[in-house]
């Protein structure tokens, strides 16, 4: 299988604290890979390095054998990496469809164009994407008044704008009701399957993780302690210990992360 993303010896320290230590893994084409671990394990740091928000202390990130290290987020996006945020980030003053159109405008490199009306550009494509995530009925609503679950769907639509080969999702279901979680993850897995997109996501809800991922990686104190199929992780003694020892049994602790 082709490897979409390859991470080699990635490390990050803040002062004396080693947030991520010598992390290496890869994501295969079409794969849904979950990155889990207790709070403070280094998941977000790892994500931020992959997306270019943080500069690694050492190590490299390759996308289709192209080194992404040191690139800013927008350039990584241009290489075909999409992302969604743990705490949703959308354009509050725009309508739902305009949020998607904005990303399409950026994808077509027309951010500096001043002649056309923005709301007329790529409207059909945007509507298609909204349809894909089930948001077409709300396309003209102001983004500021959307329910949280709908914002997450909208983010997904935005992330799909430039037909990414890799999607990074940071806590995609944080802050959602259990039913919504399952729906959103089902939607996500359908989309990535149809479009042959690889997904790397972090998640606290173990039901979601076990139900939807193809493979799971467990991070603890910045180090990768397990990497394997859903079954093998479920029965991994080390993982059990980390979670039991850390006092956060396989259950969600989203209240904490969402705050």
């Amino acid at each position: 299988m082709t490897e979409v993303l390859k991470v080699k010896n990635l490390s990050k320290s803040f002062g004396g604290i080693h947030a991520v230590v010598n992390l290496s893994f890869s994501v295969a084409e079409g794969e849904l890979l979950a990155l889990i671990g207790p709070n403070g394990a280094g998941k977000t740091t790892c994500f931020n390095m992959l997306m270019g928000q943080l500069k690694p202390t050492s190590g490299n990130v390759f996308l289709h054998d192209e080194n992404l290290s040191g690139l800013p987020p927008r350039k990584i996006w241009r290489k075909g990496v999409g992302r969604t945020f743990q705490i949703t980030a959308t354009y509050q003053s725009m309508t739902v469809v305009e949020n998607v159109q904005m990303a399409l405008i950026s994808h077509h490199r027309r951010c500096f164009s001043i002649l056309p009306f923005a709301h007329q550009l790529y409207r059909d494509e945007a509507m298609e994407l909204l349809q894909l995530v089930g948001m077409e009925a709300q396309s003209e609503r102001a983004c500021a008044i959307l329910a949280y679950g709908d914002l997450k769907r909208l983010e997904l639509a935005i992330a799909l704008c430039h037909e990414p080969t890799l999607l990074l999702m940071d806590e995609p279901t944080a802050g959602m009701a259990p039913r919504e979680r399952i729906e959103l993850m089902q939607l996500t897995s359908d989309i990535v399957r149809d479009r042959r997109i690889s997904v790397l996501f972090t998640e606290h809800d173990m039901d979601v993780v076990f139900a939807h991922s193809h493979r799971i990686m467990v991070l603890n104190r910045g180090e990768l302690i397990a990497n394997g199929s859903v079954e093998s992780i479920r029965n991994d003694a080390k993982v059990q210990e980390v979670y039991l020892g850390g006092g956060t049994l396989f259950k969600n602790d989203e209240e904490q992360t969402y705050a």
């Binding site: 945020f85 725009m94 950026s106």
Partner: peptide, 25 residues
């Protein structure tokens, strides 16, 4: 203000995180 440029400017104001993550400088 209604052109892509005006929208990009509002996007940068509303959420520079999302804007940067979708290729907007």
């Amino acid at each position: 203000a209604h052109s892509p440029f005006g929208y990009a400017l509002r996007a940068a104001r509303d959420s520079s995180r999302q804007a940067e993550a979708t290729g907007i400088n």
